[in-house]
Write a protein that binds this DNA or RNA. Structure first.
Lengths: 191, 191
DNA sequence: ATATAAATCGACACAGGTGTCGAAAAGGAG
DNA sequence: CTCCTTTTCGACACCTGTGTCGATTTATAT
């Protein structure tokens, strides 16, 4: 694979993001990808042998990108709480534009192709949060909570809200209620 | 429509439940429905003109059934808290068998056919919960909370957990953490 | 029992997707 | 520039789904 090949491969992945976010997984066809990339189906097939492979490549690219996020912030010595709050703020921002989320596509993919992908992504997400919580405890910001338990709570609320928001608008109160609940468990009563 | 017609119509709906729960929405074909009903496609089409219509009929039947649930319990003067707790216990039971849930099919349907259905079901669910909370407040079991806000929290946690559990196993702690959180908001500190 | 209406079947034409392949075009090393 | 490799194209055969329709079977009222 030469420079040109690699470039188009990346551009196909990038262009298909919006497609999967808008239509889910099974509803995206190679024809759709053609339209957003201005390529022929034949051309596409020399990069990805199916929409499944394309979607897998997209997920891989996404996870790679998010891997570094929290690591960077903690590396600079930022406050754990502020990282947490910002993270939820960006969720609120994101779910205001549900057409930017791959959640439903991922659920569909898990259900119809390979259920493992969700567990895998779940585990990756959990590790990220665990690091942050431990970092917060070490800095004395958070109580000595049960890290696994609180991470589960964060993860499920976070993802649940994200998925739900795709089909029904969320009120800001809901985000705040969830954030407050988590903060309460991490740093004690906040009222 | 005669007796026989009505009976087969119902049996088609009943038989298709497992199909939608297992495969989602778009992945269910009339051929699939044939297999579980032992009918021909032609025969099916004289009852439902598409899988969308079949799915809509299924949703309608489900909501009708759940409509009466809480109403019955409150009618008998049961404790609001026990109804709430039982409701979450049954969620835990249900999500232990994710193949019994229509959540992903509903998300898919909302995304590809008609987003309104989710809002509608959401509203129906919300009404049910609101009644219960108001009932609990009237009986003095619950604090005079903001009903809308707490119902949002319940609804989103509830649905979020349900959806997420379909692709990744949930630990019991998570259910309890969520239930405790809601109880805390409803009846004050429980620790 | 029989006439009439309803329900069911199976074949049909069609639409839209898939994956493949040889030919053509574009890229890149010397 | 030019030759070889890589990328891209568009047509091909195929599959699986759809929705329709006349013919046939099955219910049901009288």
């Amino acid at each position: 694979m030469t420079a040109k090949g690699e470039r188009t491969r990346e551009s196909i992945i990038d262009a298909s993001y919006a497609l999967f976010a808008k239509k889910g997984f099974k509803q995206v066809t190679m024809k759709d990808v053609c339209d957003v990339t201005n390529m022929s189906r034949g051309g596409l097939y020399s990069h990805f042998s199916s929409t499944s492979q394309l979607f897998e490549a997209l997920l891989e690219k996404m996870t790679e990108r998010s891997e570094t996020d929290i690591q960077e912030a903690t590396g600079k010595g930022a406050s754990a709480l502020s990282i947490l709050v910002e993270s939820f703020a960006s969720l609120e921002e994101e779910t205001g534009h549900p057409e930017d989320s791959l959640s439903i596509a991922m659920l569909e993919y898990a259900q119809t192709v390979d259920a493992h992908v969700m567990e895998q992504l779940n585990r990756i997400g959990a590790e990220k949060w665990k690091k942050l919580i431990r970092y917060g405890i070490k800095r004395g910001e958070f109580k000595a909570v049960d890290v696994d338990e609180i991470v589960n709570l964060i993860l499920y609320s976070y993802q649940g809200v994200r998925m739900w928001s795709m089909v029904s608008p969320m009120k800001p109160e809901v985000y705040h209620s969830i954030t407050e609940n988590i903060k309460r468990q991490l740093i004690g009563e906040t009222r």
